[in-house]
């Protein structure tokens, strides 16, 4: 718990004190209860805005896609087209061992 000294206008203080006496809820409890929900809502909105402001590169850096590699050991060409080409320009199919692993 943190303590926040707060100045209130006289009228607000009077009203709060009256309410506290009538409802047997402390002035501090009343304030805590009343600001809880709007505070959460505002913070949520600010966080959403903050997230939206992340440029796409920052987004990618902060949100990599973790998890299993479902195509391990295969090159991008092998994934897309089923085969790749070697140095001589010959079509090369993925090795059986590679294919078994995937």
């Amino acid at each position: 718990m943190k303590v926040l000294p707060i100045k209130l206008p006289d009228e607000m203080y009077r009203d709060l004190k009256l309410l506290s006496q009538m409802t047997h809820v402390s002035m501090a409890d009343f304030i805590r209860k009343e600001i809880k929900k709007p505070l959460k809502t505002r913070v949520k909105k600010i966080n959403i805005r903050k997230k939206e402001k992340l440029d796409f590169l920052e987004y990618m850096l902060q949100n990599p896609i973790s998890g299993k590699d479902h195509m391990p050991g295969l090159t991008h060409d092998e994934i897309l087209y089923g085969y790749t080409y070697n140095e001589k320009g010959e079509q090369v199919w993925p090795k059986k061992a590679k294919a078994k692993k995937s």
Partner: peptide
Amino acid sequence: TILLMKTKNIQKIGILACRF
């Protein structure tokens, strides 16, 4: 396409596609 095939994570790839 390659990211989708490797990760199978349509939700995240969908977000990437929208951002692009």
